[in-house]
Design a protein around this nucleic acid. Structure first.
Lengths: 203, 203
DNA sequence: GTCTATAGAAGGATAGAC
DNA sequence: GTCTATCCTTCTATAGAC
């Protein structure tokens, strides 16, 4: 693969990412992607045979980015409280830079649940799960956490971080009427959400 | 309008709702809707001039349903804690019956933020807001709540209720690997989320 | 590897008969 | 009010020249 190939292929991939995230699989047009990349449609099909192939490449990359942000939480040598603060700070910072990713993923995954199942097959969920459990078994006793409530807790943490960005358009419409700035809100959220969770699990 | 008209129009509306919620505005096909309603395409255009008109009718109805579930919370004569428990119980029950609505709304609102702004213009946000504030000003002192943190608190409550259904496909894929049943999880969630919030705001 | 031109299919919308 | 037939546009995908 020559330098020129790599550049074109990358440019296509970047443009496709932007268009797919903005309009979704169904709303995106190959013509839009070609225009944004400054090339013509035929070249898209030369590199990625079909729209579906191109979309899949973009989806996998984005899903990987989102989940990679979670993984340090599982093996970092931090206390539970430190992990929670670390997670919200890092994850919300990532979402501030990529505010449309949550909505994109939620939509495409609802549209085609097989996509995420296939993606997760390459991730050792069970292993991460066991690591996390064993790492904090002792610490959990100090908090209001049992093995049974961990799914509730983890989904709550994800919810508090991701939801404001997924539902951003709704929140912004409401905030506009209440004189609140979304940027300020999301910056405050890093600390608020961490405090919120820690108080909620404290005995 | 004759009885027959009403039946056909309703049948179209119901079919359109099902198809739009399942596939989104961009993915939905007028042919799908006609097939599901047991009529032909031309009749769709007879009742709702364009696909856009039909979609707007469906969207407004769904947005109205979702937000109506929030409104009793604003004026009910209940203590703060009772309101929180009432909200999670009612709202999650509604979502259990309509699990695809959150994903649908989030997607369409991201696709076109104007829609929700227009919808909210007909709702007296400021009034509901003032009612809520004045109603619990005294009670707030007992909790960890200030006027400044109310947007954080309210978005957190919405997040804990809505997110699991919006991201249902992701959670189900994860839960499958961990031997957890989503139905059971969502039933437990009513109480877990309420307890979670109440502990989080308690001093 | 990149372009122009076009095939081929699908979708929204309308005309016109009943 | 409902149907069949069809127009017209748009979109993905490919053929073929350079």
């Amino acid at each position: 693969m020559t330098e020129n190939d790599r550049q074109t292929e990358e440019k296509i991939f970047e443009s496709a990412t932007e268009v797919f995230v903005a309009k979704g699989m169904d709303g995106a047009r190959m013509q839009d992607i070609a225009d944004l990349a400054g090339i013509n449609k035929a070249l898209l099909h030369y590199y990625y045979r079909t729209k579906d192939h191109l979309f899949n490449a973009v989806f996998e990359k984005i899903a990987e980015q989102m989940f990679r942000k979670f993984s340090p939480v599982f093996d970092a040598n931090l206390s539970l409280e430190e992990k929670i603060r670390f997670f919200f700070s890092e994850h919300i910072s990532f979402l501030q830079k990529n505010p449309r990713l949550p909505g994109f993923l939620i939509n495409e995954v609802n549209r085609n649940p097989e996509r995420i199942k296939k993606f997760l097959r390459n991730i050792e969920i069970e292993k991460l799960w066991q690591t996390l459990l064993s790492q904090h078994q002792e610490e959990m006793k100090k908090y209001n956490i049992t093995n049974e409530t961990i799914p509730q807790l983890m989904s709550s943490i994800a919810a508090l971080s991701v939801f404001p960005f997924a539902a951003r358009a709704i929140l912004e419409a409401l905030f506009e009427r209440m004189g609140i700035d979304f940027k300020e809100y999301s910056e405050q959220r890093k600390e608020y959400a961490a405090d919120f969770v820690i108080r909620a699990i404290s005995k």
